[in-house]
Design a protein around this nucleic acid. Structure first.
Lengths: 369, 369
DNA sequence: TGGATGCGTGAATCTCGAA
DNA sequence: TTTCGAGATTCACGCATCC
């Protein structure tokens, strides 16, 4: 707590600094039970092989840095278990940890956390509003990353600022899925050449929510994979202490310059809420998946043209196939057509516009948001 | 594929049935390499202690069934590794699996999948539009569950109906986070007392998306934790075969009654949008042979580069010669080039993409088939 | 100054069949 | 098993440029 007298162990901490070196060695050199929160963004072990090009033939700048290379799952596990053990020793009894990862590594991290005695509180999904698409159409767009929030032990009285997060979420309980954009634009740090300074810089909005939700002012937040220092920047801004550990000198240099520019906020730290209150998009396919329309059912146009609904939410008429908009446009010989207002379905002998069903879904969405 | 002759192993399968007993024993009794897809909703090992009450003091009906009780993580791991091994043996070489879970078990399941040799394709978040709130305000609202989609091996040519899922999502490629409501209302099966028949019944919309996206009509879908048979119901409706395995008689009974009521959709509703990859290959030389392009005629690129058509269907420019793709790539200095969409020819002063000619041939082929 | 247009890019396990 | 070559494939933004 902010008001609590700092204990002896914490007094020996090198606060608000970036420590150079291997995170396991350095964590082992710091006093036991001294840190309130750990935020860790470890290597994901992506195991990328060849190169990848966009449809326009430009090359994707992939994460191929040496620090993300591991010989095997076993090697990655052994690294993971070692740093998680060192991290747990550092935590105060009521401390907690956040770890972020992708499907490449997060299952291994999660199992190691549980095996080490941490107690998982939530898994939190960062849903990216602007992810990189899947260029080859071979998988789903990888549009999220996973964070695990765990206390040091099952009995820990971890910090959770329920009301603060609820306030951040317009008065509604914060959920386990967070929609936030990736780090781009001015926030993305560049090196002297104008290239990105770090391949995986996290957005400050993500750390903002983590730190507001699970620390108090004056707390100590340690990041063993500091990179360009997002954790430090947000901690400093929010009046928390940080300790960064980073092996690579180039990252430390960028982080130091960044942290020098950060000013602690006075009082009301408001999230840059991107509340574009436009109506949410409802794919027509959801009406089929949710059983509101039956695959095989016929839709009818105002002038009596008909088309059949297929399981993937596309339509097929005598001569055309495609989306509700495409088939409508083709049947009318029009350049475009709003399928939502064009098509109707039959219930109890009545013709009903399909837009009614979309309204039902939107009403649910608004109620449940 | 639906039209492919079923192989010997698959012919011995007990299709469209619910098998009674332990899933590991039963899977081991079925023929190796015979199943296209496995969907598994294993016990979550929730480790619930005590009871939970809502703010109004009503009790939350928690999952406390005996089948969800495990003595330790080690016991749960050993169970998980055993059924995943039996499941992998059953899969065809190009088969795939989906497993759904929560933070209690999904990390252990994911690590076990990777260790067993499965190849993770995506982790998919089922984002619940109407989750149960966190009554105590001690954690984030647990508003999602995680599914892991993995192929049998890294080299598997898994089924992925990219275009169908894109159609379900109104023309934008499907992401790894799916917003769907939980199973309520009349879809939620009740027992004779009017209580819910199964504590964790999954919504059909979720299975619809899984099955449309990763199987073809006629495929065999196995569910080793069948419960009340959502996987079977959706498989049957979508013209896939199912095999259910369920230990508890009460669930089998409910599932049987449910499946009897399901009708298979007619074939035209089952058709989905397909990708160009599945269309027949047309050699460029055919355009010349058929007189659609004259030997000696010039093709033009979007940026005005030109090449001459030769009698054998190769191109020659000032500096390069080769296929339409090779010459395009060389002229652009690109690693590759789709000549079909790159080159244009001239008719009546208009520039027309050569892909139009390929479309004409494909339309003829479809009509004559 | 403002709107339209175009370009660049982000933690990516990203083709496939024939020879 | 490896090699070769045809040819399929992208969404949301920020920012710069150009009328």
């Amino acid at each position: 707590m902010a008001t609590k007298t700092r204990d002896a162990a914490a007094e020996k901490l090198p606060l608000d600094q970036i420590l150079a070196g291997d995170c396991i060695d350095i964590m082992n050199s710091l006093p036991e039970g001294s840190v309130d929160l750990i935020f860790a963004d470890p290597p994901y072990n992506l195991q990328l092989k060849g190169s990848l090009h966009r449809p326009d033939n430009s090359a994707v700048d992939a994460v191929t840095d040496h620090w993300d290379q591991f010989a095997s799952f076993a090697a990655y596990d052994s690294f993971t278990r070692a740093w998680l053990k060192a991290a747990r020793r550092l935590l105060k009894p009521d401390g907690a940890i956040w770890v972020i990862g992708s499907y490449h590594n997060i299952f291994r991290v999660g199992a190691a956390l549980q095996d080490a005695g941490y107690w998982v509180l939530n898994d939190v999904i960062w849903r990216k509003s602007n992810p990189m698409p899947n260029f080859k159409g071979k998988r789903l767009t990888n549009a999220h990353e996973t964070m695990i929030w765990a206390s040091k032990a099952e009995t820990s009285k971890y910090t959770f600022n329920y009301e603060a997060l609820k306030a951040l979420n317009e008065g509604i309980q914060m959920r386990s899925d967070w929609v936030l954009p990736i780090c781009t634009g001015h926030e993305r740090l560049k090196d002297a050449n104008g290239d990105k300074a770090h391949p995986t810089q996290k957005p400050e909005s993500l750390l903002h929510r983590v730190i507001v939700g699970s620390t108090n002012p004056g707390d100590v937040v340690l990041d063993p994979f500091f990179g360009t220092g997002t954790t430090g920047a947000v901690s400093k801004m929010l009046g928390r202490h940080f300790i960064g550990i980073e092996r690579e000198e180039s990252y430390r240099k960028v982080a130091t310059a960044r942290l020098d520019k950060v000013r602690k906020l006075d009082a009301s730290a408001l999230e840059t809420s991107t509340s574009k209150r436009s109506e949410p998009r409802v794919p027509f396919g959801q009406l089929v998946e949710r059983g509101m329309l039956r695959p095989g059912e016929m839709l009818v146009s105002p002038r009596g043209k008909a088309a059949k609904v297929r399981v993937d939410g596309s339509l097929v008429s005598a001569e055309h196939r495609g989306s509700i908009h495409q088939v409508g446009a083709l049947l009318e010989g029009a350049p475009s057509c709003n399928g939502w207002t064009y098509w109707q379905f039959k219930r109890d002998g009545q013709l009903i516009p399909i837009d009614i069903l979309r309204q039902q879904i939107r009403t649910e969405m608004a109620r449940d948001a």
